[in-house]
Design a protein around this nucleic acid. Structure first.
Lengths: 352, 352
DNA sequence: CTGAAAGCGCTTACAG
DNA sequence: CTGAAAGCGCTTACAG
């Protein structure tokens, strides 16, 4: 009887071995003799054999699925259902690049408030993917459902659950610290920090890192909170204008803790007659590989693409060693020196 | 004997019917009595039943797969393997939004020069997706492989193959036409067009549409080709500066055929002492929902997100009626009126 | 080191 | 309208 054209049986017949041997050989099992394995793989290539993933998945489900490699990554975005933008887009780009480089594929699903009940749970348990990368506001319930599916899983970006979880995230504290240390090295002692609010994780942690670096030098960071819009017009006046505050206290350098807004802040400084870097130095905090507002900006930058890519690596690692403790990878920022900072003569007596 | 917890057999037992009836009921087959069907669906919901997609796919593969609904869309990007950007990102966003809204999922794969031989073909034939949306430079070979997999398939964006294919794309000619007609209605008669080159499909077709609209009015479009960089510094001087050419010929309005570059062009006009719209009117051609360079820009805009979403609709349509002729959907542009055009007194004798 | 066999969960043609 | 049965292509435990 003639075997099906694209089947392991066809290969088995061509090689004169058993179907099972073909399966073992193509899955690189050590139990098959080296020579046999190579011969079978060669024949499979020549015949243009394409494994049927559905059948493979189904057959494997009979036994344990520990230690499997992650070929299909399920990227699940928990959010409000708006068009993809900014940081999520950057994560997706990074994950996609790494998965593609590994010859795998990316299954992307959104989970929003409007998603039908049990959609995510169904996805996790439907044998479509070998691993889960969670994005956005993945809460305890989401993590529980994912865990129940028995899939290896990581959280990319901020962790919104109360439980420990494998996670890769930007080292925001290091961002704040690195920016301040750069300014200290340039001789600055009166350093300010500005952000919209100290509400989101990144805002708080950048500020904490900056404060810690100041504290180590025996200094105090001047925190100012201000609603910085995306255009100069959108800036909301606070009770007291932060720029006036900075001026009053003799601040020589400001760290802008809001990604993508340093350009607007500098415009605002210019409106108030302050030149950068002559009158005041500015360091921007940037996320993702989006170019900073102006080419010459000094910034501490963290690549969200890189975070996404590292998330894929972590997921594969987790799949290999399923029962390890929760790993948390912090991706360090980089300092990009531009033209918005200058060295100043060290003022004596400040730090003492 | 106790059935498996998450299986159709468990539902069958709970309902006192046969496993096959459960399958039919959950797939909304008309052959099952209404009452029975509803009862089974209710029980399935109560038990939190999640179908095993791998098993379903495998079982279905035994029979014909015509007329199936498209739940998993395979989005295949043929390109050079760079990070996702611009227009592809917009397509992806649009496809993702529509697929998510329909409760489906998006499987994203990249096919680059570096991809292992047969990767795409393997993907198409591995029963992972129910339909294929092709993006980027999908050539005849790619389309042949996709067709061989027997999956419904559409091309999103420009078609780079020589064969007819189901396709959804921006109506570039309408963009050029619409822009020119807007300028004609404002009284302009000497109208110029500028683009980097007339090489890519969008450049040629926008120009053709603009020329056609001019020709219908008995006028001739003044075509200028120029390498417009992303910043004013990057502008490459041509043998003759197009702005000088426009000035020499008394051009009162220019259509910028290069998405995202109108702002730079206007800056350049300003450097040469030409004010917009007082001295010259400008219409930008924009793709994707990215905001135009400056808020007040008059532009003809086509949403690549919309193109992606319509691509999903077309794919579902194609899956329903597999043997129809190649459909080609052209997504019309919109005119967004801004402040960069002005009405001018109609010069007599021009069009006659 | 290899082969014969069971079975993963499901769908559908077929018989009643 | 419903039930009993075959089989989708594959993997792996088990026996040789």
């Amino acid at each position: 009887l003639n075997p099906k054209p694209n089947s392991k049986q066809a290969i088995a017949q061509a090689c004169g071995v058993n179907l099972a041997t073909v399966s073992l050989a193509l899955n690189n099992h050590a139990r098959v003799a080296e020579r046999t394995r190579l011969r079978i793989q060669e024949v499979a290539r020549r015949l243009g054999y394409v494994p049927n993933h559905a059948a493979r998945q189904l057959a494997r489900s009979r036994f344990q699925r520990q230690g499997r490699s992650v070929e299909r990554v399920g990227l699940v975005l928990f959010d409000g259902g708006e068009p993809l933008r900014g940081v999520y887009m950057a994560f997706l780009t990074g994950v996609e690049q790494r998965v593609s480089a590994l010859g795998g594929m990316l299954v992307f699903v959104r989970e929003t408030a409007k998603s039908p009940r049990g959609r995510f749970s169904g996805f996790a348990r439907s044998e479509v993917v070998d691993g889960l990368a969670l994005l956005g506001v993945a809460d305890d319930k989401a993590l529980r459902q994912a865990k129940k599916a028995g899939l290896p899983m990581v959280v990319i970006g901020d962790n919104h659950s109360s439980k420990p979880v494998h996670q890769v995230c930007v080292d925001y504290r290091a961002m704040g610290r690195m920016a301040v240390q750069h300014l200290l090295a340039l001789g600055h002692r009166r350093i300010g920090f500005i952000a919209d609010r100290l509400f989101h994780i990144y805002q708080r942690e950048i500020a904490e890192g900056a404060q810690a670096a100041m504290a180590e030098a025996g200094l105090v960071l001047q925190l100012e909170v201000w609603n910085i819009g995306k255009t100069p017009d959108e800036i909301q006046p606070a009770l007291r204008d932060p720029i006036d505050s900075f001026r009053a206290s003799g601040t020589t350098a400001v760290l802008v803790g809001e990604p993508g807004r340093a350009g607007v802040f500098i415009d605002r400084l210019a409106q108030k007659g302050l030149r950068v870097p002559d009158d005041i130095s500015v360091v921007a905090c940037e996320l993702s590989d989006a170019k900073p507002d102006s080419p010459g900006m000094t910034c501490v930058d963290a690549s969200m693409e890189e975070v996404g890519a590292i998330g894929v690596d972590l997921l594969r690692e987790v799949a290999r060693t399923p029962n390890g403790p929760a790993r948390s990878i912090l991706v360090p920022p980089r300092l990009v020196e531009g033209k918005t900072c200058r060295r100043i003569a060290q003022q004596t007596g400040e730090a003492l």
